[in-house]
Design a protein around this nucleic acid. Structure first.
Lengths: 64, 64
DNA sequence: ACAAAATGTTACATATATATTTCATTATGT
DNA sequence: ACATAATGAAATATATATGTAACATTTTGT
């Protein structure tokens, strides 16, 4: 399954590298988070959400 | 300023130690997160939110 | 088909979240 | 005032997020 974060990034027309630069992370880190193989820090999640004009819930919360 | 997380925990009548046990963390970790001196992992944030019947946004998102 | 960009992937190094332990301080109830 | 629970705080140890670098694979445009 493709993550909501990846959808939001593509929707914004950003590449992994571009997003990474905006949030002071690396391309690899962004890629791993998108694949769900990472457990990112809250601060990084917030930076990503703001860069993509989303909230934490919209990107990282699963409606149970 | 007292964190939203601390308010939600007290509202639920939980002690730091009780919440910590529910989310598989330690009392100290919970305390530091409440004080804002920590940058917790997304998984821990999600566990805390669920334990307190809140969402990520409600606990960790600052409405700008 | 080709070139270039974007993404995947792995190995290793580093920074930091978290655990563990111990003791001090503050709150709560009786 | 006393006892107990709850929280604060510091030291060290460990696990893991993140960075860096290099190369492979896929995608995109021409």
């Amino acid at each position: 399954m493709v993550s909501k974060m990846k959808l939001a990034r593509i929707e914004k027309g950003l590449t992994q590298a571009q997003l990474a630069k905006q949030v002071n992370a690396t391309r690899q880190t962004v890629g791993l988070i998108e694949k769900g193989e990472y457990n990112p820090s809250l601060n990084l999640c917030i930076a990503i959400a703001k860069a993509l004009n989303k909230t934490l819930d919209e990107l990282f919360w699963e409606g149970d």
